[in-house]
């Protein structure tokens, strides 16, 4: 009896949550700000500067959506979230979109009632070891102690990798990336494993980066992307196509510098015209005006510009485009046609 009452309460709670999310766009417009869940600190992806203004690669996605929906890239309230509470915060309606280096997996997409709107960064799990160990391949790591962040997909990938290669390891569980750096540098573990982007960012901060090598093996697929709730397809469309607009803009050569000019009058490229609203009215189909994509691109530039400014080779993190290059340049970034 007690149990059924409890289940009933949970079901009612679920229903109200669904009702709350029925029209996220209206909620956001009435509120005048977009609530965006980000990591409380991940180098290059989301970090507050000295004034408390959020910067980074994941942050830029939210700013673009804020610009598309509210005509103001600064009208975004950033909600810093921990790994443990990020999905609950999204499904409870505390945030409208989660842009927090979250890996797209089957169970998260289906069982947790979330929708991944696309991929903004293709990552993969790698290993970093001190050079003096002389290890050149992850398969030489038999018996190594491995620093690993708990509660993430990296922990599971690690177990899979070592089991399938029939070698042993000893895990050293740690909570945050900062702690991992300390443990690794203090020699508490031989190997540090996390997403390759994180390894590069971490290694860049070492006193002597050249004393550490990132092994060539990438043992997992980590497609990171923004997430919205199940049940509001219109909102999902807005988020998905804003991200696609940023990617397509790079492919079409639309940048933050020339977007105003290109949007002023129709060009001779019909796809650019449709994207920027000088031909047809794609915005109306997702409940926005014609200029939505122009504002999204003007907010922080196209995908390539955002990448270069936050994590690209000119920054201390220095990530190469790799898998994240446009499909025309051998990468995986491929926006469906704007038609």
């Amino acid at each position: 009896m007690k149990k059924s009452v409890l289940l009933g309460a949970v079901a009612v709670a679920g229903l109200t949550a669904a009702a709350a999310s029925a029209a996220t766009l209206d909620d956001v417009k009435a509120r005048g700000s977009l609530n965006c869940g980000v990591s409380s600190g991940l180098t290059g992806f989301s970090e507050p500067d000295a004034n408390g203004v959020w910067q980074g690669f994941d942050v830029a996605v939210c700013r673009a959506i804020g610009a598309a929906v509210l005509e103001d890239p600064t009208a975004v309230e950033f909600v810093p979230l921990t790994t443990q509470v990020r999905f609950t915060a999204l499904s409870s309606g505390e945030i409208d979109i989660l842009s927090r280096n979250t890996t797209w997996t089957f169970s998260r997409d289906t069982d947790l009632n979330l929708n991944f709107i696309g991929v903004n960064y293709y990552d993969g799990q790698g290993f970093m070891v001190p050079k003096e160990l002389g290890v050149t391949s992850a398969k030489d790591l038999d018996g190594a102690t491995v620093c690993i962040q708990t509660g993430t997909t990296t922990e599971l990938n690690l177990a899979d990798f070592f089991r399938s290669n029939n070698i042993n390891y000893e895990p050293v569980p740690i909570e945050t990336n900062a702690e991992a750096q300390q443990q690794y540098l203090a020699g508490a573990c031989d190997v540090y494993t996390t997403d390759a982007s994180g390894l590069a960012a971490t290694r860049a901060t070492f006193e002597d980066p050249s004393a550490h090598v990132i092994l060539p093996e990438i043992i997992s697929k980590e497609p990171l992307g923004p997430v919205v709730r199940h049940g509001d397809d219109n909102w999902m469309d807005i988020a998905r196509w804003t991200l696609n607009a940023l990617i397509a803009a790079e492919e079409l050569g639309v940048t933050s510098a020339n977007v105003e000019e290109l949007a002023a009058a129709p060009t001779n490229n019909p796809e650019i015209n449709r994207l920027l609203g000088t031909e047809g009215d794609l915005g109306a189909m997702i409940g926005l005006d014609k200029q939505w994509a122009v504002r999204a691109i003007a907010a922080g530039g196209n995908y390539g510009e955002i990448f270069e400014r936050n994590i690209g080779e000119s920054t201390p993190i220095g990530l190469a485009r790799g898998l994240n290059a446009q499909w025309t340049e051998g990468g995986l970034m491929y926006a469906p046609p704007f038609r």
């Binding site: 990591s39 409380s40 600190g41 991940l42 180098t43 290059g44 989301s46 970090e47 507050p48 500067d49 909600v79 810093p80 979230l81 921990t82 509470v85 915060a89 945050t176 900062a178 750096q181 960012a201 971490t202 860049a204 901060t205 070492f206 920054t315 201390p316 993190i317």
Partner: peptide
């Protein structure tokens, strides 16, 4: 997700200037 001093130190460490 409230930025108490400890959590704030994580955020400060996230900037590439002070990472580490």
């Amino acid at each position: 997700g409230l930025l108490d001093p400890i959590n704030l130190s994580n955020s400060i460490r996230a900037s590439s200037d002070w990472n580490g």
